[in-house]
Write a protein that binds this DNA or RNA. Structure first.
Length: 483
RNA sequence: GGUCCCAUCGUCUAGCGGUCAGGACGCUGGCCUCUCACGCCGGAAACCGGGGUUCGAUUCCCCGUGGGACUACCA
């Protein structure tokens, strides 16, 4: 390890590439990122792909693009490089092999030749006897000669950690404070699998040390394996990093957040039109809260105010309702041009002709009051781009005498002038209501229906302003019965 | 089953011995308004239970209870 790295805050997000970035992973990545930024340290991306069976093509690219979309830029990582590479564990196998020799030599680790079947049977009987399922240590005390013989015979084997049976491991966690575990309940964890790849525990410890990680910020599911990790650090003669175990993100039934109970892929939230800014803001509030009552933050603002000591201990349910509100808030409060640009793909997908940018901006301005995601924008803009659909009841209303009078009046009025201000339009509406002796819904509903396709919606000046004079006249004329 | 962790409105949370237990989402009443939406104002809604410690516990300690994680040659 480079000496200069020693004083610096260095944290990492270390996902295994299982296909996509999970929202729980995003939260872990975000907290790591924020801590690094706040402390002026480094944020590193490391890929933990030591499980060959779970290789998924494209998963790495996916992960990287999701992190980029979210604005979580890392200082070191597989695609950006850095002084501690490679940052993909499958490319570091020789490093693990070298280090395991050291453990073998010091008797901290030992070869185990037990078959998977034996292990399964063992666990089965242990469970039946209501004993905790653990390795029984069959190969723990094999003599060197016995090991040599089996190895020479080419017997398949793994390498296990020789964890002490006595004593107690006590450690500090920034969030949980003191945690204590009896060594007798810690298993002789497999460190090197029969395919020569390391397990999480070995690779993680070695890499965290070699990469100069100062704070291990990760999910609470790792809390119970910390004793193994500490034992490894000490066996290697390394300093133990500071541990920060984040509370879990939960399904609405309080189990660990998983798919099948809604979307967990960050990617799919993007596809539905959730803004990265809203996702980040929302996720940040799951387990973290500022000292005041403020809840709306940009990523840059979070970088300034984030601190580990304001992280909660209890798990948090991922509440879609609040995300929807927050996303809607961002959609309504961002610059309309920005929202228009981001909504574009959704409109294009619908085949709407948005070449008239001025009109499009106006449509967005109206539509965004109604939605909680960009995906919902298209249904709210449709009436300005497509032919209106009417029900039988609609047609009945539009054929009524009053409706017809209104249409005739407006066709006339609109044709008379080429440009209207909203104020002039509103004044004309007041005037029309007076001369026709109609008011309120009696006047507005038929008019809005013919122009907008619904009796409920934006006010008339807004609709006419978006449609323009010609389209407005055309829409009215379509329902004028005798010309 | 064992070990570890956790526990304030339905949800996210503030609280760090004395508060009318605060905010946000959601729900709800009203205002704005032709309507819808937005927005604004108000309301209902919580300290898991039992013991301690203390003049006084949501807050500190213990025991229950409940929930979760881990218990793989997955991470």
């Amino acid at each position: 390890m480079v000496d200069a790295l020693q004083e610096e805050v260095r944290v990492r997000f270390a996902p295994s590439p299982t296909g996509y970035l999970h929202v729980g992973g995003l939260r872990t990545a975000l907290f790591n990122y924020l801590f690094a930024r706040r402390e002026g340290g480094k944020f590193i991306l490391r890929i933990e792909d030591t499980d060959q069976k779970r290789f998924i093509p494209g998963a790495l690219e996916n992960l990287i693009s999701s992190l980029k979309n979210m604005g979580l830029h890392y200082d070191e990582g597989p695609d950006v490089g850095g002084p501690c590479g490679p940052y993909i564990q499958s490319e570091r196998v020789d490093i693990y092999q070298r280090h395991i020799q050291e453990l073998l030599a010091s008797k901290t680790a030992y070869y185990c030749f037990c078959s998977e079947e034996r292990l399964e049977d063992l666990r089965e009987t242990q469970r039946k006897m209501k004993r905790p399922p653990m390795y029984d240590g069959k190969c723990r005390d094999l003599t060197e000669a016995e090991v040599r013989e089996k190895l020479d015979a080419g017997a398949p084997c793994v390498i296990r950690l020789r964890f002490p049976k006595e004593g107690r491991t006590v450690f500090d966690d920034v969030i949980r404070r003191k945690v204590a575990v009896d060594n007798s309940v810690v298993d002789d964890q497999v460190l090197i699998k029969s395919d020569g790849f390391p397990t999480y525990h070995l690779a993680n410890v070695i890499d965290d040390h070699l990469m100069g990680i100062s704070h291990v910020i990760r999910g609470e599911e790792w809390l119970s394996s910390v004793p193994k990790h500490i034992y490894l650090y000490k066996a290697f003669g390394w300093d133990v990093p500071t541990f920060v175990h984040l509370p879990l993100l939960l399904n609405s039934d309080r189990s660990k957040l998983s798919k099948r109970q809604g979307d967990v892929a960050v990617e799919s939230y993007m596809e539905k039109g959730y803004l990265p800014e809203a996702m980040i803001n929302f996720i940040a509030l799951l387990g973290w809260h500022s000292a005041d009552d403020r809840e709306l933050y940009t990523l840059q603002e979070l970088e300034q105010v984030f601190s580990l000591d304001r992280i909660n201990k209890a798990g948090a349910i991922f509440d879609l309702d609040k995300l929807n509100w927050m996303n809607g808030w961002y959609i309504r409060n961002f610059d309309v041009e920005v929202i228009a640009e981001r909504t574009r793909p959704f409109f294009e997908q619908e085949g709407f002709d948005i070449s008239d940018w001025q009109k499009y901006i106006k449509v967005i301005g109206v539509a965004r009051d109604y939605v909680s995601s960009l995906e919902e924008m298209a249904p709210r803009g449709r009436m300005f781009y497509e032919e209106l659909q009417f029900s039988e009841d609609d047609r009945t209303l539009m054929a009524e005498e009053n409706s017809q009078k209104i249409y005739a009046y407006w066709i006339d009025a609109l044709k008379g002038r080429s440009a209207w201000t909203r104020e002039a339009l509103q004044a004309r509406i007041e005037e029309a209501m007076k001369t026709m002796g109609l008011k309120g819904k009696k006047f507005y509903f038929p008019l809005r229906l013919a122009l907008f396709g619904n009796t409920h919606g934006p006010d008339i000046p807004t609709i006419i302003d978006i449609l323009g004079r010609d389209e407005s006249v055309e829409r009215l004329q379509r329902f004028l019965i005798d010309g």
